[in-house]
């Protein structure tokens, strides 16, 4: 593999791994707090999956010449993280969590489909398993959306408020974080196509659930996680995540 291809693959995989890791971490914050016992189990299990996907991708990055997964997670400066700001934001209430997770899962499904065009065997191998698990995650959060949207006045109001609140923060999710020529070279669709597909899918489901459509997704954002311009929320996550590591760097887990 030539240097250029390796660099392109590292740039492609890092945002995906970081998204999954941060989603997993935010998910772990609900442990013991989810609205029901059954959901507590399901929610934890789903976020364990996400962390598993992240680990697989971090190991791929390590094989491509990046530091090992522990170093990537515990020692990387904030500005080198490439997850979308959308996934690093604080959870909010259960409706806001469901909305965020549904939006992310729909995006993730479309991203995984797009990644099938990338000619890199170890990635394709991992994607198969990841795709199976993600299909379940999407169904789970779509069902929650449906239940909340049609579950009475308060649930419905909370969903609509949550949609309105996260809507302006969506756009960096669709950014591949790659130069256009590199993106085309890897066989990936442009960010715009990914976003259009997402809008089509989500809009159709919003219609089924009789949720008002919030309109165009704003494109101007002060922050862009794919370029390393994060919100303070990522600092909070990393500080919590690294707390033990900072106190006792050599401790065994």
């Amino acid at each position: 593999m030539d240097h250029e291809t390796r660099e392109a693959l590292i740039r492609l995989i890092t945002p995906i791994a970081d998204d999954e890791w941060i989603v997993g971490h935010r998910g772990s914050e609900w442990l013991g707090l989810a609205p029901e016992l059954e959901e507590d189990l399901a929610f934890s299990s789903i976020h364990q999956d996400e962390m598993g996907h992240a680990l697989y991708l971090y190991e791929l990055l390590h094989d491509l010449g990046e530091p090992d997964p522990d170093a990537l997670v515990y020692a990387r400066p904030v500005a080198s993280w490439r997850n979308a700001c959308f996934v690093e934001a604080a959870n909010g209430d259960w409706a806001a969590t469901v909305v965020r997770r549904y939006f992310y899962e729909m995006f993730d499904r479309l991203r995984l489909e797009a990644l099938a065009h990338v000619d890199f065997t170890p990635l394709a191998h991992g994607l198969k398993k990841i795709q199976r698990e993600e299909a379940f995650h999407l169904k789970h959060f779509a069902l929650w959306m449906e239940m909340l949207a049609q579950g009475g006045d308060e649930a419905r109001r909370r969903v609509i408020d949550a949609v309105a609140a996260v809507w302006p923060t969506l756009s960096d999710l669709f950014d591949w974080g790659l130069r256009d020529d590199v993106q085309a070279q890897l066989g990936l669709p442009p960010a715009l196509a990914l976003k259009d597909a997402w809008v089509r899918e989500v809009r159709a489901q919003f219609q089924d659930w009789q949720l008002p459509w919030p309109g165009e997704i704003p494109t101007t954002m002060e922050h862009n996680g794919r370029a390393g311009r994060h919100t303070p929320a990522l600092d909070d996550i990393l500080t919590t995540m690294r707390a033990v590591r900072v106190i006792a760097p050599e401790s065994a887990w």
Partner: peptide, 20 residues
């Protein structure tokens, strides 16, 4: 056994509670 809001959610919860 599990509690769930509807049969579809029951299936999802069953999968996560008993067949992980």
């Amino acid at each position: 056994s599990i509690r769930a809001a509807n049969p579809e959610m029951a299936l999802q919860m069953a999968r996560e509670a008993f067949f992980r």
